[in-house]
Design a protein around this nucleic acid. Sequence first.
RNA 1: CGGAGUGUCAUAUAAUGGUAGUAUAUGUGCUUUGGGAGCACACAGCCUGGGUUCGAUUCCCAGCACUCCGACCA
Length: 415
Amino acid sequence: MLQSKLFSKTIKNSPEGEESKNAQFLIKGGFINKSSAGVYSMLPLGLKVLNKINKIIREEMNVIGEEMLMPSLIHRKYWEQSKRWDVDIIYKTGTRDNGQGTRDFEYGLGWTHEEVITAIARHYIQSYKDLPKAVYQIQTKFRAEARAQAGLLRGREFMMKDLYSFHMDRADLEKYYGKVIDSYNKIFKRLSLKVLVAEAGGGPFTKEYTHEFQVLNSAGEDMVYYCDKCDFCQNQEIFNSSNHKDCNGEIRNAKAIEVGNVFKLGTRYSDAYGLVYTDKDGIKRPVIMGSYGIGPTRVMGAIVEVFNDEKGIIWPEAVSPFNVHLLALSDSGKVKSEADKIYKMLVGQIGDSEVLCDERTVSTGEKFNDADLLGIPLRVVVSEKTVAAKKIEIKKRAEKMPKLITSAQLKKIIN
RNA sequence: CGGAGUGUCAUAUAAUGGUAGUAUAUGUGCUUUGGGAGCACACAGCCUGGGUUCGAUUCCCAGCACUCCGACCA
């Protein structure tokens, strides 16, 4: 990909008022565009990152569930049945004139999908032979947050991966719940995020404790209490130091970004929707459910909050919009022809979608600064100097000092 | 939802009760090319409604939007 062809370009001025690093860098770099508070467009660069995050999530989710897609426009009857129509968080919409006057608010925009999936499940789950089942989707969610804030960390429209599971009994739910936790840990590891698994209260709809996946970071809105020796970790809501036993470690507390959560729903929704199965003895029993979320757009914001310096973003390789950023420090002569050669070689190795080539006719400083802002993990420079030395300069975004190598060595490194 | 603040070119900002200035970006031309290069010219703006006033971008009121703090966050 040639940088001059990118739809977006970097902006030199910092966006007014945005304090969070993820909002600043992502907007300046041309990854996202703010449409209104908490509502963002994913520009081509940002979408590439989001797609890579989602790809990792899908690969891990497909091991324990099947992907599907539910509607965003959800009729009020679904929410009324579970008594969740009168909540502040729901965007109500849909005015219709049926010829006998208008009717307002026929729909709620989906902010979570327990209702829809439970209603669907009635069609396919009737017997113990149909259990267990698990489906997930990656979809835009809408929440009327009183206060959107911190860029991608709290939006009114955002991407969510939501997984729902159905079980015969508690034991099977527990087993699956553990599998989801393992799966989530793998996902966050692949995303280079260190997470703490925090116990949390279940809220009004489940009596049990649930778990949150928390990334320690000062930009977070949550406070977690964790032990420096064992894996004890609780959120502020339920923390009590006497919960921490059998360990002489010290309790610390820190701000954290919640990037995922897991809930044992029990029969709250199966009761509301009459989702029952017939067991071996012919007895009808309610299906036991769980739900599990990860916010890919929030994950993207969290990654920027964790991986940055004063110059810009430092993308982990797994989610970087490109693997290599090739800078041609001149747009003519030997430098250009050498850069073209290297570009072709790189494209041949990892494909056009993984190489960003800065062949713009702009100053050297601008190219370096843009490269730092965009944060692609490996920078490759072709210039008068490198051509004269018959070498190529490479530098990792996370490191300070560049290295001179041959193009054969570069080829090896890329492989 | 409570508190505070801010609304001026595409972006970031300044000043002003009477002609709105600068920087970035953009366009043209020339000179430049290892850390946001220079000169010249050009293009481009006062959130909406009401009030006060001879006259309002400026003062007052309301609305809307945005930001920050707090509450909320199945």
